[in-house]
């Protein structure tokens, strides 16, 4: 499939996007990206443009895509550093999305509960836990993606799960 995508086959791009775009968008959304859908499209534009230089297996490709998504998210946060608030860090924003229709939609998707769960995590814990759970990356892949040591990632994920446990029990 990678060879077909490198050759410019539309079906290969469609397949790669369909497989990974939902989880990438979910990761960006739960991380508080302002426009997760648009950011996902930016991520895949860069990924598909850089595909000729990629060599590796499918799990490595997945790890690469999430690494790019994480970098784009960090870039977006830097650009938005003067914004008043970030969605997932602000409980008021989490509790009151913009309007009844949107709130109902979030409730229907179960997102409200998930946002509340994620809001109990620190930024570092959320980053690691989401990459492990949503991105389905290994500890080593997460460590490379976020630029931390394996030990630091293990500590963060353990503390994150402990915080979640306190929240749900």
């Amino acid at each position: 499939m990678f060879d077909a995508a490198r050759a410019g086959a539309p079906w290969a791009f469609e397949r790669l996007y369909t497989d990974l775009a939902p989880v990438v968008t979910g990761y960006l959304r739960l991380q508080g990206a302002a426009e997760p859908d648009d950011l996902t499209s930016e991520v895949f534009l860069g990924v598909f443009a850089g595909l000729p230089s990629f060599e590796g297996t499918e799990p490595q490709f997945r790890s690469w895509v999430f690494t790019i998504a994480h970098r784009r998210l960090v870039d977006e946060r830097r650009r938005a550093v003067r914004r008043p608030s970030e969605p997932t860090d602000d409980p008021a924003t989490l509790d009151g999305p913009g309007g009844d229709a949107e709130a109902e939609a979030l409730d229907a998707l179960g997102l409200r509960r998930v946002y509340e769960l994620c809001a109990t995590l620190s930024a570092e814990q959320r980053e690691v836990v989401l990459l492990r759970v949503v991105g389905d990356l290994t500890v080593e892949q997460v460590a490379r993606a976020v630029g931390r040591s394996v030990g630091a990632v293990k500590a963060l994920q353990r503390r994150g799960l402990t915080a979640l446990r306190k929240k749900v029990e």
Partner: peptide
């Protein structure tokens, strides 16, 4: 729940 919330299809730009 966190895992399931990230399975919604998304349209490309």
């Amino acid at each position: 729940q966190i895992r399931a919330a990230s399975r919604q299809p998304v349209r490309p730009s």
